[in-house]
Design a binder for these strands. Structure first.
Length: 267
DNA sequence: AGGGTAACCCGGACGC
DNA sequence: TGCGTCCGGGTTACCC
């Protein structure tokens, strides 16, 4: 479930814990399900490397080492935890990095969907991504023009990380509701004004998510409280916070989708 | 090109 | 209580 705001929260919290520390050892579990060609080579490369920076690109956590970039994608159930003292693997731990300050970073992932990469060519992975919605290049003009270069349903297009990077199922529903656009609206029929509203909604919702340290759903991500401020996601059967009509749940592109049928009508 | 489907995985919810 | 079934989350592969 980590989307852009949750990964941003991880990056901000982990940066002071990791920067300047050296990786002393690496313990891999279920390595087959990571994106690592060879555990032996991975260890050889990462051990001895000093952590230079921690940042986020889309939903990837980017840990920059002296000679490599270590990328982590948490997918749905991934979690990153700093633990202290001797390494004690817990259930669902998949990767443990022992650090030079005696702490260790644990990548815990119940559903084993998460992936990590260790590469000196991070652009091979990150280069395919669309723009960052919170950066300046994501303008209403860019959005309007690019919505019109294709004809796709809005929601699947917004979820396409090569189009725009960072939105997942939850934030997309929130954004479309705020912009009063139906998730199945054809992208090339969106007006200039609507593109402006959508751009504002995306930035507003993501910024609010970050301000609240992300949304904690189920047991998979803890720390944020944005889930208490959802407008439509998970609220089917409840009244729309804008107009009071009952929120409906439908399926769009095989994804559970929440809309207000009054605020977001098709056509 | 865009859409639909399946696969990956497993804890929790739900039905009986 | 126990067991079986379904769901969901992000992404990719594959097919029509």
């Amino acid at each position: 479930m980590p989307e852009l705001p949750e990964v941003e929260t991880f990056a901000r919290a982990l940066k002071p814990e990791l920067v300047g520390k050296t990786v002393l050892s690496a313990d891999l579990r279920w390595a087959r399900t990571l994106a690592i060609p060879s555990p032996i080579q991975f260890k050889k490369q990462i051990v001895g490397q000093r952590i230079v920076d921690v940042s986020r690109r889309a939903k990837y956590l980017v840990i920059r080492l002296e000679d490599y970039s270590f990328l982590i994608h948490l997918r749905m159930s991934g979690d990153l935890i700093i633990r202290q003292g001797k390494i004690k693997p817990e259930k669902h731990d998949r990767l443990l990095l022992h650090l030079s300050n005696q702490n260790y970073l644990a990548f815990n992932d119940t559903r084993k969907f998460g992936r990590v990469w260790l590469t000196d060519q991070p652009d091979e992975i990150l280069g395919k991504l669309g723009p960052e919605p919170l950066e300046e290049q994501f303008t209403a003009k860019w959005l309007f023009e690019n919505l019109h270069t294709r004809q796709r349903q809005l929601k699947p297009l917004l979820l396409d990380q090569t189009f725009l990077a960072g939105l997942g199922n939850i934030y997309t529903d929130e954004c479309l509701h705020m912009a009063k656009l139906h998730p199945q609206r054809a992208s090339n029929t969106v007006s200039q004004k609507q593109a402006e509203a959508l751009r504002e909604a995306i930035r507003t919702v993501l910024a609010e998510g970050i301000r609240r340290n992300g949304a904690s759903i189920d047991w998979v991500y803890r720390g944020g409280d944005f889930q208490n401020y959802f407008r439509v996601y998970g609220r089917d059967g409840e009244p729309c916070p804008v107009c009071g009509r009952t929120i409906q749940k439908l399926t769009v592109g095989q994804r559970g989708t929440h809309i207000c049928p009054n605020c977001q009508h098709l056509r």
